[in-house]
């Protein structure tokens, strides 16, 4: 009986496993293969990649941009999620609905919308000139700052939803428990609420980070000339039919993402330990 049930449940896993292998593992392995066989075994693509400052510079810029975007998202989403989680149930649904609305619009349209808002003759400049704060339009569009703004706006809902769901699982009695055991309000937040919600924040930040690593439309539309992402390079090389080199860039991007995620997780763990165990001052 028991063994029977076990067999049935492994059967149920098969479709998911098949999907994973067919649509994730095999393509990834194929990209890995394409990066080192062109057509014979070669390391030339990686030699070229690591031999040139350009690609490493762009890799570093991509990582840095993604880190900053996920950090900003995390910092903004935290109090927003906290605010939502403290509302009564019905209001929570309403606020989450508001958070979700932008997700219905395509990234391209939202990026263009930011061009309209931030442009020389855009909304903000028009208001500032109209109110006499400035007589020359301020350059906001086509700057790295604009990339941050647009990407944060695009990715923030994902962070809020992840963060909120982690917070909503926290038993608020734990805060009372901390208080009665001797914690001042901020100590209860720091040692109990923060470490418990950090997990969701970090998960959200990692999702945002990974999505950012693959972004290219938004930086290309609202960014400056230096806002080139790894994905832009991949797109260029694919269009040039340089599959091998494109594959090599993809592999490097993948590895860089995995390593970064690993580091983020470790840092978060250390931070949590600090928050929990640190001095009570």
């Amino acid at each position: 009986m028991n063994t029977n049930r076990k067999i049935t449940s492994t059967w149920l896993l098969w479709p998911a496993l098949f999907m994973l292998v067919a649509f994730f593992l095999i393509p990834t392995l194929d990209i890995l293969r394409a990066s080192v066989y062109d057509p014979e075994f070669t390391t030339k693509h990686f030699v070229k990649l690591f031999g040139s400052n350009v690609y490493l510079e762009i890799l570093w810029r991509t990582i840095r941009l993604s880190l900053i975007v996920s950090l900003i998202c995390a910092v903004i989403a935290y109090p927003v999620s906290y605010f939502i989680v403290l509302r009564p149930r019905k209001q929570q649904i309403f606020f989450l609905f508001l958070v979700f609305i932008p997700l219905w619009m395509s990234v391209l349209i939202r990026s263009y919308a930011w061009m309209v808002v931030l442009g020389r003759e855009g909304l903000i400049n028009a208001i500032m000139i109209g109110l006499g704060f400035t007589d020359q339009p301020v350059k906001m569009l086509f700057t790295t700052g604009a990339v941050y703004i647009a990407m944060v706006q695009i990715l923030l809902p994902i962070q809020i939803v992840t963060c909120y769901s982690a917070m909503s699982e926290i038993d608020f009695d734990l805060m009372r428990a901390a208080r009665i055991l001797g914690a001042k309000p901020w100590q209860a937040i720091r040692r109990v609420f923060l470490p418990l919600s950090l997990d969701g924040t970090v998960t959200g930040a990692i999702i945002v980070f990974m999505l950012s690593m693959g972004f290219f439309i938004t930086p290309a539309l609202v960014g400056g000339r230096k806002d080139i992402m790894m994905a832009n390079l991949i797109e260029f090389q694919v269009n040039q039919l340089n599959w091998g080199f494109a594959a090599a860039i993809s592999i490097v991007l993948l590895i860089a993402t995995v390593i970064s995620v690993f580091i983020i997780k470790r840092l978060a763990k250390t931070l949590t330990r600090r928050l929990v165990g640190g001095g009570s001052a």
């Binding site: 263009y112 309209v116 020389r120 569009l141 086509f142 400056g224 000339r225």
Partner: peptide, 23 residues
């Protein structure tokens, strides 16, 4: 000319948008 270039467009549609927005 580099310092005087506001942006480096990537699609024809974008270039039209830039000109029509006065960007």
């Amino acid at each position: 000319i580099k310092p005087h270039i506001t942006t480096w467009w990537t699609s024809g549609a974008q270039s039209v948008q830039l000109l029509s927005d006065g960007e």
